[in-house]
Design a protein around this nucleic acid. Structure first.
Lengths: 260, 260
DNA sequence: ACACCAAGCAGCAAT
DNA sequence: ATTGCTGTTTGGTGT
């Protein structure tokens, strides 16, 4: 099932990686390497110890021993080529579209571990911006007692709008830009764009603009008010901070929500 | 140096991970697991085979056997806690700020590999937007034969302006928003914001706005022209090798050695 | 600490 | 295929 080599030689390691790749296994290499990337940009990473992750779909990821993000990577669908150049293991990874290449030179190896991995399940997520928009649709009075959200068809004729509707009494169009976190200047710009678009397309003179978010930056609020728009504070529907007690209950909660 | 376990039992694996963590080694686990994350959002990943990467700085990353991005992750600085719950290895990862938790249950293990990794060198990169802005500063005629870029201090006076200057003959202010790729609607919004800001702050009536990029989307071009701005096509220079910074010297050394 | 912005952004859905 | 936009965005820089 799994195959691990501790402190292998170049040839040994190359054979193991080649084998894993041919068998469509996932493979992790730890070693001292340097990396050259050329594609949409160019980069060079000088000698150091890293983790190299090779997936069977042609994904290749270089991780430094600290930090969240990879130092270098190649997206799924790459080709792999291994060679021994003067005692250095050279891994070339190539992508056709976009045209990119990565060259990893490994001069010392700590381990090469590989295993066939099966995974048919996908991540289930809650707490996104779409969830917040849905919450506003269900609770329109958060925006205004007079606000009535529209159906989706009416929205789509104006393009991508987070939440769209109108004021019941006046019939004025209402556009709401929803942000999951602190709304900033670009959120206001976005709202402004949408408002102008709806004004043009509908011919309505009066289009009201709102930003609904947990918070808004000072400058963004100023810009918002300058344009005659309004801010509505909206807390996310669920408490997302972790509870210390009874972690297991949460798991069963996920299960029941999965089952539905 | 390196330590690998193939198909270990729960207790064995827990001991190895604990040991790696205590020794500040980087550790990779392959196994069948499910993952619950709660923090800025919530997610649940049902049973499947994954790679788990634990770094000594408290980074924890869950990779599915395909795809570029991690399914789940915890950023640097987390605490780790291991336990055996009814024959299932439970890895709890906790972050204080922001308050987040991840719970990984591993019911089968393929390998646990760890090694102490040292890496003092950082990535050197060229071909960013800043490089393109620098190129325009050096070659202002790309924008207009009459365009004279200002020095860097003047750039920062109004905030984050990519390139700022004026027309030599008329004295009109010029603002250039630089994009490394296809300029889109948000790029035009950004330019518009900057132009309005400079108009307000400087009292200048005439402020010219440009987008300099390799390309621009259709709608973005329409919006750009509607506002009276202009587009300038700018291809990134063939050779992006900079000279000033010490770190960057490494890259130019590489390139010149490659070219021979 | 906050605000703002680029990113080899990635990935996804709608056109 | 392109466009537009979200993201547990991340990471960096300037105030």
């Amino acid at each position: 099932m799994a195959e691990c080599l501790e402190n292998p030689g170049i040839g040994e390691a190359a054979a193991a990686i080649e084998r894993a790749w041919r068998r469509k296994e996932s493979c992790v290499i730890a070693g001292t390497c340097r990396v050259i990337y050329e594609g949409r940009a160019k980069s060079f990473l000088d000698w150091g110890d890293r983790l190299l992750v090779l997936k069977n779909d042609g994904t290749f990821i270089v991780h430094k021993p600290s930090g969240n993000n990879p130092a270098n990577w190649m997206r799924p669908g790459c080709d792999l080529h291994l060679s021994d150049e003067d005692g250095v293991l050279v891994i070339r990874i190539e992508s056709k579209k976009p045209p990119e290449t990565m060259r990893v030179e490994v001069r010392e190896l700590f381990f090469v571990s590989s295993s066939k991995l099966h995974d048919g399940t996908n991540l289930v997520q809650v707490g996104t911006e779409a969830d917040l928009a849905e919450f506003i649709m269900q609770n329109p009075s958060i925006i205004d007692p007079d606000f009535v959200p529209s159906n989706l068809e009416e929205q789509t004729k104006y393009g991508f709008l987070d939440v769209y509707g109108r004021m019941k009494s006046s019939g004025e169009a209402v556009i709401i830009e929803v942000k999951r976190y602190n709304a900033d200047l670009s959120a206001v710009s976005q709202l402004r764009r949408y408002v102008e678009r709806v004004r043009n397309l509908s011919g309505k003179e009066k289009v009201l603009g709102f930003i609904a978010a947990p918070a808004i930056t000072k400058n963004a609020l100023k810009m918002l008010l300058d344009f005659g728009f309004e801010f509505r504070r909206v807390e996310p529907p669920e408490r997302l901070v972790p509870e210390s007690r009874n972690q297991r209950r949460l798991l069963s909660e996920y299960y029941s929500s999965e089952k539905q």
